[in-house]
């Protein structure tokens, strides 16, 4: 058992690409679900819209990567409007159904043969991030090693920008939720008729929350695309949305830093268990070595499910949540 290797993987995962991507996606869901009570089950679609915008703009149209960024943001805003206009006046569950279906439709369009020319079908799109790395201030030979893991200059630049985006998204969240705007959306989460009766345009607030959370989803999509130098429809499956929800609930919904803490812990544990199990098999640990590598990979997903169940039973408010708020639900 190489404990230092396991530890290194945990640290690099806690602050690595996935942590950034799902942190951003979860911050978006925190605005929508945590504070406003909107069940957006289609965050993967917003990520896809962001990722594919930068990819397609470069690969198909030969434009700059940086043109893709505003296009991705505008596309995410349009998607939010498209999903929100018919559903936000209806009961909360309608949005959930529509967003989950829309996310699948978008993914299937992205991988369809009909649009293969544009989106590259199931292969997706590659090699579009040069414009992004061109701005990197780090020298080509820059590298950080954490134990046996090495982070190269491109990763370093991606992580720098990624964590800055996370910081920006957290700052915006923090500024908003402590403001009167935040008060209105928290009111809507609890009882939208009460808020309406006080003269607030509930529909407009829900739409703003949906759009803002969707834009954060698009940012997550940018980082996914850059980090992998690749966009691929199967990265944006509904699983991605549920990972973001798991992270939010783990860290604590309706807490500004909930998604941050959630994503760090989630990825450290998720990848940590993976290497632990594989190391354990190699080292012939009792019980664990009865499995092979494929089984171990499945087991860790089961452990995540178990962990979330235990969390919901013993600490439903998440790590940072406020138990008092939940207890009041029962009244």
């Amino acid at each position: 058992m190489d404990w230092s290797y396991i530890l290194a993987v945990m640290v690099t995962s806690a602050f690595g690409l996935q942590a950034i991507v799902f942190g951003l996606a979860a911050i978006g869901i925190n605005i929508q679900f945590g504070y406003t009570g909107l069940l957006n089950f289609g965050q993967a679609a917003f990520m896809a819209v962001g990722g594919y915008s930068v990819a397609v703009v470069v690969v198909e149209f030969g434009w700059s990567f940086w043109v893709g960024v505003p296009i991705g943001i505008i596309a995410a805003i349009l998607l939010a409007l498209l999903l929100g206009i018919p559903t936000l006046r209806l009961r909360a569950d309608y949005l959930a159904i529509v967003t989950i279906a829309a996310a699948e439709i978008i993914r299937l369009i992205l991988r369809s043969v009909t649009f293969k020319e544009l989106f590259g079908g199931s292969d997706g799109r590659q090699a579009f991030a040069d414009g992004f790395f061109a701005l990197s201030p780090y020298p080509d030979d820059a590298a950080i090693s954490i134990g046996p893991a090495v982070i190269n200059d491109q990763q370093l630049w991606t992580y720098t920008v990624g964590w800055l985006l996370v910081a920006l998204a957290l700052l915006i969240t923090w500024l908003l939720v402590r403001s009167p705007w935040g008060r209105v959306v928290k009111g809507i989460r609890e009882d939208e008729d009460a808020v309406r009766s006080l003269g607030k345009n509930v529909f407009a607030y829900k739409m703003q929350a949906l759009v803002l959370g969707g834009v954060f989803g698009a940012l997550a999509g940018f980082i996914t695309a850059i980090g992998a130098q690749n966009v691929n429809p199967d990265v944006f499956k509904t699983d991605a949305t549920f990972f973001a929800y798991a992270i939010l609930i783990l860290g604590g919904a309706a807490r500004v830093f909930g998604p941050l803490l959630g994503t760090i812990i989630f990825w450290a544990v998720f990848q940590g268990t993976d290497v632990f199990l594989r190391e354990g098999i190699d080292a012939g640990l009792p019980i664990i070595s009865l499995m092979d590598g494929t089984q171990a990979a499945v087991l860790r997903v089961m452990l995540v499910g178990l962990g979330i169940m235990l969390l919901m039973i013993y600490r439903p408010q998440g790590i940072l949540g406020d138990r008092r708020e939940l207890a009041l639900d029962a009244r």
Binding site: P180, R183, K200
Partner: peptide, 25 residues
């Protein structure tokens, strides 16, 4: 609104709050 404080319930009632718009907020 039971998960909000009494004072926040009250503040929510006030009209024309500039901080209820996203950018000024």
């Amino acid at each position: 609104l039971s998960k909000m404080t009494v004072i926040d319930n009250m503040r929510l009632g006030a009209k024309n709050q500039i901080g209820e718009r996203m950018i000024p907020a």
